[in-house]
Simulated scan of single mutants.
Amino acid sequence: MMSNLFSIFDPTTNIFNLSLNWLSTLMGILFIPLPYWFTPNRYFILWNFIMIKLHKEFKTLMGMNQFNGSTFIFISLFFFILFNNFLGLFPYIFTSTSHLNISLSMSLTLWLSFMLYGWINNTQHMFIHLIPQGTPTILMPFMVLIETISNIIRPGTLAVRLTANMIAGHLLLTLLSSSSNNLSNYLLIILIFIQILLLTLESAVAIIQSYVISILSTLYSSEIN
């Protein structure tokens, strides 16, 4: 039972000994059809509206010391996670964001780039950031230790947050669907209705998690300037 339950997260499914599951990570490109680049259709207007809103919000969070165009890194991160989260809701499509291979790679890469840039270019600011303003002298060593640990575990918390939320919803849907074999028609209708509600909730979680990861990454980048 457990092996079948967790088989939906198994990345080793292959064809002719070629692991093709991870190709679903690139399927988000299919959401950008050719007319997007040529005509201002409704899809383009919606896409552009979302990007402008995200750009304004990320620009506000990053403050005045940002580089031109730096917000588009986090906009791209938002859409990348969003597409992969949504693709995982379709049957027989591998959810790459439910694995730490993807989520930890993204969060660790961003965190390392922020830390290297901050400690190389703004060393004094990074040291000051380890001690909150108004901290008593006797507590400064403890605050430095606490801030250092909280800073180190940031990529792990980002990755685990995304992975755990995607796994939880998929497991719940799988558990409910596996219990439908011996149900009466009346209970089966109720189960289908519950599954539709859970799928709607999972769609909201897919959007929220991509937004949360992007916002937190933006906040972490704003602390190095």
Rank of each mutant, 00 (worst) to 15 (best):
F114H: 12
L110C: 05
M140R: 13
L158S: 07
N85P: 05
S98Q: 03
S184A: 02
Y186G: 00
I194R: 06
A159Y: 09
S184V: 01
G169M: 08
L173H: 09
P141G: 09
M140V: 15
L87T: 05
I146R: 14
M115P: 01
S98W: 08
A168T: 15
Q124M: 06
L100H: 08
L104T: 04
L175G: 06
S179N: 12
T163C: 11
L112Q: 06
G134R: 04
I138K: 01
S150V: 04
I152L: 14
S150F: 13
F127C: 00
L87R: 02
I81G: 01
F94H: 13
G88C: 00
I131M: 00
T148G: 11
N101T: 11
L89Q: 12
I149S: 07
H129L: 03
I192T: 13
T135E: 04
V160Q: 10
P141F: 05
I120G: 02
S96A: 15
P132I: 00
P91I: 02
S107I: 10
I152H: 07
M166T: 14
H125E: 11
R154I: 12
L100S: 12
L87A: 09
L130V: 03
L173G: 13
L104G: 04
H129T: 02
P141S: 03
N185G: 02
N121W: 10
F90L: 15
T148D: 01
P155H: 07
I149W: 07
S105R: 09
L145S: 12
G156N: 06
Q133V: 10
S177R: 10
G134V: 11
I192Y: 08
F114K: 03
I190S: 03
S103I: 07
N151Q: 14
W111F: 13
I131W: 00
G169W: 12
P141V: 00
I167D: 01
H170D: 12
L191P: 00
F193H: 05
N121S: 10
I102G: 04
Q124C: 01
S150K: 14
I167A: 05
S178Q: 15
Y117K: 06
L188Q: 14
L187H: 11
L162I: 06
I192S: 08
L172Y: 05
S150E: 13
I120V: 05
G88L: 01
R161M: 14
I102M: 12
E147T: 11
M166D: 08
S150D: 06
F127I: 03
W111H: 10
T135L: 01
L188M: 05
Y92Q: 13
R161Y: 15
T157R: 14
I146D: 10
L82R: 05
M126V: 01
I152F: 15
L130I: 00
I192Q: 06
L110Q: 07
L171P: 06
N165W: 08
M166S: 15
W111K: 02
S103D: 10
I81V: 10
L158D: 11
L145C: 11
V144T: 01
H129A: 07
R161F: 13
F90D: 05
T97V: 15
S113H: 08
